[in-house]
């Protein structure tokens, strides 16, 4: 039984060298936090709390990861999520009748979510069109749309918060099924779907090809432009799902909500083994990285550490990860050369 497990781990480890350190890091972080907080970290209440906080961050990180695999980036995820949330909130508040029956309620909520998805798709199409067809570098496109989308949201709301969603809608962020919060289930399903798309579907393979060598990919008959267009639409839809969750969890929408999460998503992608130069990235790595980061933040908050210390620690962790990657890469290189030399001698 145990030997079987070790063998399995060995084989997983060999196949996933780029993220193999993460389970250990996760374990160490959890252990340190448990000890440092005198056990408060592992109490049921805090675990629930951790579970409640992860989905929005995880969904946004996935939205950041998809373009990163194609050697792009999407800086507009937060502002497009906010625009989506504001439009959904206006719809919910505008059409929700007093004392509506169960059927109407469900139809309206599904309608609001559908509207949100349409908005996200439109926002994603603009990004995807500019990156794929006009060939504007992704950093610049999404920098521009980040400013533009936030501006539009600001103009719609005139700076005010739209709050007090219908009770039924809030269930998405607060109710549980089988002990798991609904929005956690949403995240797990989305992560699973993304993992399947990434690692089992032709589109996923194209995504990685585009990320590692767009020219070669184009010559091998893949429509690179279409792949890129799809990429940014998917990214935007993921941000839209995050908006659905955030609207339910925070019961409000505004132009600048969640702006501090943008950096965390980049950090999570990096930590989770996504290569910002494109071509690499695993959903499992991202999920583990997210849990690690969330545990560190939460633990530091439990300890009453100032948030600026958290900011600095994240920065240090990022440098640490880069350094680790570099030395690991060098180790592989050395091994490869040794093997080559050994073969030559034979």
């Amino acid at each position: 039984m145990f030997a079987e497990f070790v063998k399995r781990y060995q084989s997983w480890h060999d196949r996933n060298q780029d993220i193999a350190a993460l389970p250990w890091l996760l374990f160490v972080v959890l252990a340190i936090m448990t000890v440092a907080t005198g056990g408060r970290f592992l109490r049921a209440h805090n675990i629930t709390n951790l579970l409640a906080q992860m989905p929005e961050l995880g969904l946004l990180s996935l939205a950041m990861m998809v373009p990163m695999v194609t050697a792009g980036i999407n800086l507009s995820i937060i502002s497009s999520a906010n625009l989506t949330a504001v439009i959904m909130a206006l719809f919910l508040k505008g059409v929700f009748p007093q004392g509506a029956g169960g059927g109407t309620t469900i139809i309206i909520i599904v309608g609001a979510i559908a509207l949100g998805m349409i908005v996200s798709i439109v926002l994603g199409l603009l990004n995807g069109f500019l990156v794929g067809y006009v060939e504007v570098p992704a950093v610049l496109t999404t920098l521009g749309t980040m400013i533009l989308y936030e501006g539009i949201t600001l103009a719609i709301t005139r700076g005010f918060v739209i709050s007090s969603m219908p009770e039924a809608y809030l269930l998405i962020g607060n109710a549980r099924i089988l002990g798991l919060p609904i929005h956690m289930i949403i995240f797990l399903v989305v992560a699973l779907v993304m993992a399947i798309i990434f690692h089992r579907r032709p589109y996923g393979r194209h995504l990685f090809f585009v990320g590692s060598n767009p020219t070669a990919t184009a010559y091998s008959g893949v429509n690179v432009r279409r792949v890129l267009l799809k990429t940014y639409v998917i990214s935007s839809v993921l941000a839209g799902i995050a908006a659905v969750v955030m609207l339910a969890r925070f019961n409000s929408a505004n132009a600048r909500q969640g702006s501090s999460l943008l950096l965390s998503t980049v950090l999570i992608c990096m930590l989770g083994g996504t290569d910002p130069f494109g071509g690499f990235g695993k959903v499992l790595g991202l999920v583990m990285a997210m849990v690690i980061l969330q545990a560190v933040t939460n633990g530091l908050n439990l300890l009453g550490v100032r948030s600026f210390a958290t900011v600095a620690i994240w920065g240090a962790m990022l440098v640490g990860v880069i350094a680790y990657r570099y030395y690991q890469h060098q180790k592989w290189e050395r091994k490869r050369k040794q093997l080559q030399r050994a073969r030559m001698q034979q």
């Binding site: 980049v266 600026f308 600095a312 994240w314 920065g315 440098v319 880069i322």
Partner: peptide, 17 residues
């Protein structure tokens, strides 16, 4: 860009502390 983001946080965080 990644090193820059990391250092931005370190410099800023340490100064604030």
């Amino acid at each position: 860009i990644i090193v820059a983001i990391a250092n931005l946080n370190i410099y800023y965080g340490v100064l604030q502390i």
